[in-house]
């Protein structure tokens, strides 16, 4: 399946343009814009692209109605191309991606932030449904701030050594939260998580857990340590 969805928000936070393309459908609710899965997938050789643009000064909060379940594939792809304009804000926290047995999937996120843009981006991945080994999934994140590289991050589940002590060592859930543009408190660590100060005005939370429940507990603990009330509210949906 090939699909290209698009959402564009203007400087006052109003939706300028929305193009839904199953399985990716946008639904506006009172608190946020929601991704609603309107077909199974990604699976097979699906190539899904989602473009989200927040114009200068605008704001968008994005959530999802359900987890994204990645089924058996032969090289499925899901690309996100995100642009957040000068002084604009994007708050992004969909439900987790679940990589089932036999999947072969690439999630490629490219974010371009204008000067003074704010970003609060959370993504989580669960490796296999209960008791099931995951297939192969590669997560890539590529973030530029005002034209400079801010973060190039990747995780390749299924590559040699991925389940060893350098990468995940038996943990079946991992997540990250990237916060750009708000004041950064002193970096802290806890069991299975750390806030990392990036080489730029941003910080990255890296966390892992035995399963999704443990990951959520750890990410919530990290959120509390970060003392950011607005966002800890957002994660306790």
């Amino acid at each position: 399946m090939r699909a290209q969805a698009e959402l564009c928000v203007d400087g006052r936070g109003q939706i300028l343009r929305v193009v839904s393309a199953p399985p990716i459908t946008f639904r506006r609710a009172r608190d946020a814009v929601y991704f609603v899965g309107t077909a199974a997938g990604p699976l097979g050789d699906d190539d899904l692209a989602t473009r989200v643009e927040v114009c200068d000064g605008g704001a968008l909060k994005l959530r999802s109605a359900a987890a994204t379940v990645v089924y058996s594939g032969v090289g499925s792809r899901q690309r996100f191309e995100i642009s957040v304009g000068s002084g604009a804000t994007l708050d992004w926290h969909p439900e987790p991606v679940i990589a089932t047995a036999g999947c072969r999937h690439l999630q490629d996120v490219r974010i371009s932030l204008g000067p003074g843009a704010s970003l609060d981006w959370t993504e989580e991945v669960v490796l296999g449904r209960h008791g099931e080994p995951p297939g192969e999934i590669e997560l890539r994140m590529h973030v530029d701030l005002a034209g400079r590289p801010l973060l190039r991050h990747g995780l390749a589940v299924g590559a040699p050594g991925w389940d060893g002590p350098a990468v995940l060592d038996g943990h079946r859930a991992t997540g990250l939260r990237l916060v750009v543009g708000t004041a950064s408190p002193a970096p802290t660590t806890g069991l299975g998580w750390a806030w990392l100060d990036l080489d730029g005005p941003a910080r990255l939370l890296v966390a892992y857990g035995a399963d999704y429940a443990e990951l959520r507990v750890r990410m919530a603990e990290a959120d509390r340590s970060d003392g950011d009330q607005r966002s800890s509210g957002a994660t306790e949906r």
Binding site: H142, R152, G154, D169, H171
Partner: peptide, 21 residues
Amino acid sequence: VAQLPALGGPMTDVAAEVHAS
């Protein structure tokens, strides 16, 4: 150079911060 690979390990990143402290 922007397209060069980027691959890491969550445990390596977390442990590096703990070790430094």
